[in-house]
Amino acid sequence: MKISVDISMYPLQDQYCQPIVNFINQLETFPEVSIQRNSMSTHIYGDYAVVMACLNQEILKVLESIPETVFVIKLIGTNREKANIRACE
Protein backbone atom coordinates (compact mmCIF):
# COMPACT_ATOMS: atom_id res chain seq x y z
CA MET A 1 0.00 0.00 0.00
CA LYS A 2 1.35 3.42 -0.96
CA ILE A 3 1.05 6.31 1.46
CA SER A 4 1.77 10.00 1.68
CA VAL A 5 3.01 11.60 4.90
CA ASP A 6 3.18 15.24 5.89
CA ILE A 7 5.57 15.70 8.83
CA SER A 8 6.72 18.72 10.80
CA MET A 9 9.38 18.66 13.50
CA TYR A 10 9.64 21.19 16.33
CA PRO A 11 12.71 20.84 18.58
CA LEU A 12 11.89 22.86 21.70
CA GLN A 13 15.30 24.48 22.02
CA ASP A 14 17.03 27.67 20.92
CA GLN A 15 19.09 26.02 18.18
CA TYR A 16 16.22 24.33 16.33
CA CYS A 17 17.11 24.67 12.62
CA GLN A 18 20.03 22.25 12.37
CA PRO A 19 18.24 19.31 14.02
CA ILE A 20 15.40 19.69 11.50
CA VAL A 21 17.83 19.78 8.57
CA ASN A 22 19.66 16.75 9.98
CA PHE A 23 16.39 14.81 10.34
CA ILE A 24 15.35 15.52 6.75
CA ASN A 25 18.83 14.70 5.46
CA GLN A 26 18.64 11.32 7.21
CA LEU A 27 15.23 10.60 5.66
CA GLU A 28 16.72 11.34 2.25
CA THR A 29 19.26 8.53 2.71
CA PHE A 30 16.49 5.95 2.24
CA PRO A 31 16.29 5.27 -1.52
CA GLU A 32 12.90 3.54 -1.21
CA VAL A 33 11.08 6.74 -0.23
CA SER A 34 10.56 10.02 -2.01
CA ILE A 35 11.02 13.25 -0.06
CA GLN A 36 9.77 16.73 -0.90
CA ARG A 37 10.86 19.62 1.30
CA ASN A 38 8.95 22.85 1.71
CA SER A 39 9.07 25.72 4.17
CA MET A 40 6.30 24.41 6.43
CA SER A 41 6.71 20.62 6.43
CA THR A 42 8.24 17.67 4.63
CA HIS A 43 6.31 15.24 2.45
CA ILE A 44 7.28 11.58 2.30
CA TYR A 45 5.93 9.10 -0.26
CA GLY A 46 6.32 5.37 -0.60
CA ASP A 47 5.22 1.97 0.58
CA TYR A 48 3.52 2.06 3.99
CA ALA A 49 5.84 -0.44 5.69
CA VAL A 50 8.98 1.20 4.31
CA VAL A 51 7.94 4.77 5.12
CA MET A 52 6.87 3.85 8.64
CA ALA A 53 10.11 1.92 9.26
CA CYS A 54 12.16 4.94 8.13
CA LEU A 55 10.14 7.30 10.31
CA ASN A 56 10.30 4.95 13.29
CA GLN A 57 14.09 4.71 13.03
CA GLU A 58 14.76 8.41 12.51
CA ILE A 59 12.19 9.75 14.99
CA LEU A 60 13.61 7.46 17.67
CA LYS A 61 17.10 8.88 17.03
CA VAL A 62 15.79 12.43 17.39
CA LEU A 63 13.83 11.71 20.56
CA GLU A 64 16.83 9.98 22.12
CA SER A 65 19.04 13.00 21.46
CA ILE A 66 16.45 15.80 21.87
CA PRO A 67 13.55 14.44 23.96
CA GLU A 68 11.82 17.84 23.94
CA THR A 69 10.89 17.52 20.26
CA VAL A 70 7.36 17.62 18.91
CA PHE A 71 6.42 15.83 15.67
CA VAL A 72 3.19 16.54 13.84
CA ILE A 73 2.41 13.78 11.35
CA LYS A 74 -0.46 13.41 8.87
CA LEU A 75 -0.93 10.27 6.77
CA ILE A 76 -3.12 9.41 3.82
CA GLY A 77 -3.45 5.95 2.31
CA THR A 78 -2.66 6.99 -1.26
CA ASN A 79 0.35 8.30 -3.12
CA ARG A 80 -0.26 12.03 -3.55
CA GLU A 81 3.23 12.80 -4.86
CA LYS A 82 2.06 13.73 -8.33
CA ALA A 83 -1.37 15.02 -7.33
CA ASN A 84 -2.59 18.13 -9.05
CA ILE A 85 -4.28 20.01 -6.24
CA ARG A 86 -6.26 23.04 -7.32
CA ALA A 87 -7.35 25.87 -5.09
CA CYS A 88 -11.02 26.15 -4.35
CA GLU A 89 -12.79 28.16 -6.97
Rank of each mutant, 00 (worst) to 15 (best):
M1C: 04
M1V: 09
M1E: 12
K2C: 07
I3N: 08
I3M: 09
S4A: 09
V5G: 08
V5H: 04
D6T: 10
D6F: 04
I7C: 00
I7S: 02
I7M: 12
S8T: 13
S8W: 09
L12A: 09
Q15D: 15
Y16H: 12
C17W: 12
Q18T: 13
Q18K: 12
Q18G: 01
P19S: 10
P19L: 10
V21E: 05
N22L: 11
N22V: 04
N22W: 06
N22T: 12
F23A: 05
F23D: 02
I24K: 00
N25E: 14
Q26V: 13
Q26T: 15
L27P: 01
E28D: 02
T29H: 02
F30E: 11
P31M: 06
P31Q: 10
E32M: 05
V33L: 14
V33C: 03
V33H: 02
N38I: 05
S39C: 02
S39N: 15
S39P: 07
M40P: 04
M40C: 01
M40N: 07
S41K: 06
S41F: 11
S41P: 05
H43S: 12
Y45D: 04
G46W: 11
A49M: 07
V50I: 14
L55D: 09
L55N: 07
L55C: 07
L55M: 05
N56V: 00
Q57Y: 09
E58H: 12
L60D: 14
L60S: 12
V62Q: 06
L63Q: 13
E64H: 06
S65Y: 06
S65A: 15
P67F: 15
P67Y: 15
P67T: 15
P67K: 15
E68V: 00
V70M: 08
V70Y: 09
F71I: 02
F71W: 03
V72H: 13
G77P: 00
G77W: 04
G77F: 04
G77K: 12
T78W: 00
N79K: 02
A83K: 09
N84W: 08
I85K: 01
R86K: 13
C88L: 07
E89I: 11
E89R: 13
